[in-house]
Simulated assay, not measured.
Amino acid sequence: MQKRHQVFISSTYTDLKEERALVTQTLMQMDCIPAGMELFPATDEEQLDFIKKVIDDCDYYLLIIGGRYGSTTEEGISYTEKEYEYAVEQTIPVIALLHETPNSISVEKSEISTEMRERLNRFRARVSTGRLVKHWKSGSDLPGQVAISIAQAISRFPRVGWIRGNNVASEDLLREINDLRKENQALKAKYELQKNIPTIEELNPADLDSNITLHGTYSANMTRQGWSANTNWREIFYLISPYLTINTSEAVIKEHLKDGIISKYRINSYKNILSDQDFQTVSVQMQILGLITINAANEHSREKLWRLTPSGESLMYKLRVIKE
């Protein structure tokens, strides 16, 4: 049955116009449906909401990173990275094409400020974590890389795609059978794992008011300096819970926790990094207390998504609601 796949093209806009045009042409030649925002690039929250609806209808998310981080929200996160976060949260397969040598890109197509270059580097590192990425040097490299990457993605991560209306009934039936098969496999795997997980009574976890010391480092006088903060599990949950009402990537939660801690305890924020070992302990503790669930973005990804359980949501309201 002939099927066409819709691909969302995400990138900064003005510096990558020519590259986007080449990618769009390649996708059309592959009988894919390119979905890009050339006429309405994301530059405000209202437009971003519209773009999310477009991403919802796409089968694959194609990210192109050049020499710019792009326009940012009030939180300091670029709209391109916001699009990426949303695609990951919706478990849409991501294909990432990163410029191999961003320092060689011309000045007019690069970030000038040190801060924006650092944000771009962090974004590149984040995208490269948990997935294979491809690198390009010039626009002429992109058509071949896009063709190979899309073909591999369609083969490895089959998606619903688009078909003619007269084939919908049979396609829906096949999809329902396939979904039931996957659900059955997932339930079997979950059952096997849970058989070996000790009960809460056996683990006897610390309660919410028990203390814990978090550690990290920051940059000062050209060296890394250590810091520590004595807090408790209730405060940690208070800081991160509002961000967990939807599926949120682990990297984002780690940043929110770090920012909340260094703000409250007045710790130097310059190039500040929270200890990953401490953060993994937070992850385990929040799960064993029944406050969050953590799942992979999709069956082929190592990126983890956090979300509140019903118990966690109830506790968040108790901690956060301002009473009369």
Rank of each mutant, 00 (worst) to 15 (best):
K3G: 02
K3R: 15
K3S: 06
R4W: 01
F8H: 04
Y13V: 01
E19Y: 08
R20M: 00
R20W: 00
R20T: 00
A21E: 00
Q29L: 07
M30T: 11
A35L: 04
T43L: 07
V54E: 05
C58T: 03
D59P: 13
D59W: 07
D59C: 13
L63P: 04
G66S: 07
R68K: 12
T72E: 15
G76I: 05
I77R: 02
K82R: 15
Y86T: 07
E89I: 09
E89H: 08
P93Q: 07
S104F: 01
S106I: 12
E108K: 15
S110Y: 00
E115N: 07
E115L: 09
M116S: 12
L120Y: 06
N121G: 01
R124H: 02
A125E: 10
G130H: 08
G130M: 09
R131Q: 12
L132H: 09
W136R: 05
S138L: 04
S138F: 01
L142V: 03
P143R: 09
G144W: 02
G144A: 08
V146G: 07
F157E: 14
W162V: 12
N166K: 14
L173H: 08
I177F: 10
E183I: 09
L187S: 11
L187D: 05
K190N: 09
K195P: 00
N196K: 14
E202V: 12
D209V: 02
T217S: 15
Y218T: 05
A220L: 05
T223E: 15
G226I: 04
W227T: 01
A229F: 04
T231I: 03
E235L: 03
Y238L: 13
I240Y: 06
I240H: 02
S241V: 10
S241H: 09
Y243Q: 11
N247M: 11
S249A: 15
H256C: 08
R266P: 06
N268H: 06
S269A: 10
S269D: 14
I273F: 05
I273D: 12
L274W: 02
D276S: 11
T281W: 03
T281V: 13
T281E: 14
V284H: 07
Q285E: 12
Q287R: 14
Q287L: 04
I288C: 08
I288Y: 06
G290Y: 03
L291E: 05
I292R: 05
K304Q: 10
K304Y: 06
L305N: 03
W306G: 01
T309S: 09
S311E: 15
G312E: 06
Y317L: 14
R320I: 14
E324R: 10
